[in-house]
């Protein structure tokens, strides 16, 4: 059974069809890239999977559960985590709190226990704090735990966002243009880093990117979107020489 299965997904904003009859499957431990020019509907697909938007038509199954109609935090609890194209950290909060917020579902105590700091509160807080610190130390962010996250340099903010997503204990990690704003050297490091995350945390990854050559190196399979529809699918090498893809990126005139 595939980990995630998307069937006939369609989403319209007013008249605009952002995602048009999109079909997609991913198996456990795969690393798949979704590429396409700007405005192709890539981020919309992520927003549909994570429940930010409710799909107009179609269905999304994750480990056998229908996701359409569920709220984002329910979907997160099922095991899907994501990062954002433009970093969306909790800027005024500390690095540690950013990660601990993502452990909301894992800390088990009632509001009453929280108000009185009694019962399970202490043990659970200690547990999630230790877990968060451990995660931060894996990402070499433990020394900055008490810093406000807005004070971190850009590259570390990207890392923290991935750490925060991993803190929700996901099976499936959705990375939305993680290389945005990075130079070629940083991108190379990032790609190695993503491969390392996949191995260390045993997660399945879907990666959005609009610069094609970045994903060629690490993705096993690519899906190309344009105007909300799949125009090509296959191995990176096949995609590279696909005429339709070149047209989508460069325009018909140039390809001729």
């Amino acid at each position: 059974m595939p980990l995630l299965e998307i069937k006939n997904l369609t989403h319209r904003f007013e008249g605009l069809c952002a995602v048009d009859d999109f079909n997609f499957t991913i198996a456990s431990n795969e690393l798949v890239g979704i590429i396409g020019p700007n405005g192709a509907g890539k981020t919309t697909v992520f927003n549909l999977i994570t429940g930010v938007y409710r799909a107009t038509e179609g269905s999304i199954y994750f480990t056998g559960n229908e996701l359409v109609g569920r709220t984002p935090h329910q979907i997160t609890k099922l095991g899907i985590a994501r990062t954002f194209q433009n970093i969306r950290l909790f800027k005024e909060l500390t690095v540690l709190d950013n990660v601990r917020i993502a452990r909301y579902g894992q800390a088990i105590y009632s509001p009453m226990e929280a108000l009185l700091h009694m019962g399970r509160y202490n043990a659970e807080e200690k547990r999630i704090t230790d877990h968060a610190m451990e995660l931060l130390s894996i990402f070499k962010l433990d020394d900055a735990a008490n810093e406000r996250s807005k004070n971190l340099p850009y590259g570390l903010q990207r890392k923290l966002e991935i750490a925060r997503a991993l803190a929700t204990d996901p099976q499936l990690l959705l990375l939305d243009e993680p290389a945005a704003g990075m130079n070629p050297n940083e991108i190379k490091q990032l790609m190695e880093f993503i491969g390392w995350i996949r191995k260390t945390f045993q997660v399945t990854i879907i990666l959005i990117e609009h610069q094609m050559r970045l994903v060629m190196g690490i993705c096993e399979r690519l899906v190309v979107l344009d105007f909300g529809a799949t125009i090509a699918e296959g191995l990176p090498a096949q995609i590279q020489n696909n005429v339709k893809v070149m047209e989508a990126y460069l325009g018909k005139e140039l390809v001729k």
Partner: peptide, 23 residues
């Protein structure tokens, strides 16, 4: 507490907060 951090995360970014599993 986790609820208080949830309150803070709503101030910072409600959608991101929901996506990080905060009810």
């Amino acid at each position: 507490s986790k609820f208080g951090r949830g309150v803070l995360s709503i101030r910072e970014d409600e959608i991101a907060s929901d996506l990080m599993g905060v009810n």
